[in-house]
Design a protein around this nucleic acid. Structure first.
Lengths: 115, 115
DNA sequence: TGCGAATATAAGTATATTCTTATATGATGA
DNA sequence: TCATCATATAAGAATATACTTATATTCGCA
C-alpha cells in the first residue's frame, strides 16, 4: 500500500539531533560530495583539532560516516550502507553546496596536503 | 539550472535541532495530520503540562506551529506558510503515522474532551 | 629506532537543555 | 462575580553538550 520508506521516530530524532548542529551538518553536506580528512575540517571551520575530532566521533558513533586511513591521514566519508542513509540523504540534498569551502582550501594549497 | 529548493545551513541546523527531540518530533508528526491541544499532548506523552507547554513554545517561537484558541482550549497546527515548510514536511513524511496515539485517546474518551 | 605530523582521548568548564514545582493568566459557566 | 479548567510562565535543579588544554596514540620517514 504505502511504499514510502519510513524511519522509526526514536532513531530519526537521534539522527536529527546530531545533524542539528551547524558544524556537523556542514560536515555532512561537505562529505556528501567530498571525502575530507580532519586537518581539512580544522581549516574549513577554523576550529581546534580536538573539537573537530569530537564532532566526527559523534558522527562515527552512530555510523553515518566511516573513516579510512591513508598513510598519515584519516579520510572520512558518508556511510552509504547505513540503514537510514536515504533519510539522511533526503535532508542533505536540500542544503546548498559547500563548494566555496573546498575552493578556498584549494586556493590556499591546503587541500593537496591531504591527498 | 538547479530547481531544487534549498535551505540555508544555519536555519536548517536550527530546525533539525528542534526536531531532534523525540517528544517534539512526535508532536510535529501528529500535527501533520491532526490538530491537537495541550491536554491531548499531556495524555499522549504522559508528561507534565508545563513540560508539554514548553516544548510547544519552542515550536511556536520559530513559527513552525501556530495556535488558535477555541473556547477554553488552544489548538495547535502546523504552519504551512512557514518559509521552510517544504523542508520540514520532507522530514515528517518519512516518519511513521502516529495514529495509535490518537486512537488510544479516542478509546479513552479523552479526544472528545477537546472538541 | 626515534622524531614529527595527524589524529584521538581525557579531564575540566561554561553554557544549554529539559525537566520539576509553584504560581499566574485567561476563558467559561454556575 | 467567583470557582474552575486549560494553559503559560518563572525559578530552580539535574543532566547534556560543546568547547578548552593537556596528553596519548599511530603512522611515515630519516
Amino acid at each position: 500500500m504505502n511504499e514510502t520508506v519510513t524511519i522509526d521516530i526514536q532513531r530519526a530524532s537521534q539522527l536529527l539531533k546530531l545533524l542539528g548542529d551547524p558544524t556537523r551538518l556542514t560536515m555532512m553536506r561537505l562529505l556528501k560530495t567530498h571525502e575530507c580528512c580532519v586537518c581539512e575540517f580544522v581549516e574549513i571551520f577554523n576550529m581546534s583539532q580536538p573539537a573537530i575530532s569530537q564532532h566526527l566521533r559523534k558522527l562515527k558513533d552512530i555510523k553515518v560516516v566511516k573513516e579510512e586511513r591513508r598513510g598519515q591521514w584519516i579520510f572520512f566519508s558518508i556511510n552509504k550502507n547505513h540503514e537510514d542513509y536515504p533519510f539522511i540523504q533526503s535532508i542533505l540534498e536540500q542544503l546548498p553546496e559547500q563548494n566555496e569551502s573546498i575552493a578556498r582550501l584549494e586556493a590556499q594549497g591546503l587541500r593537496v596536503c591531504c591527498k
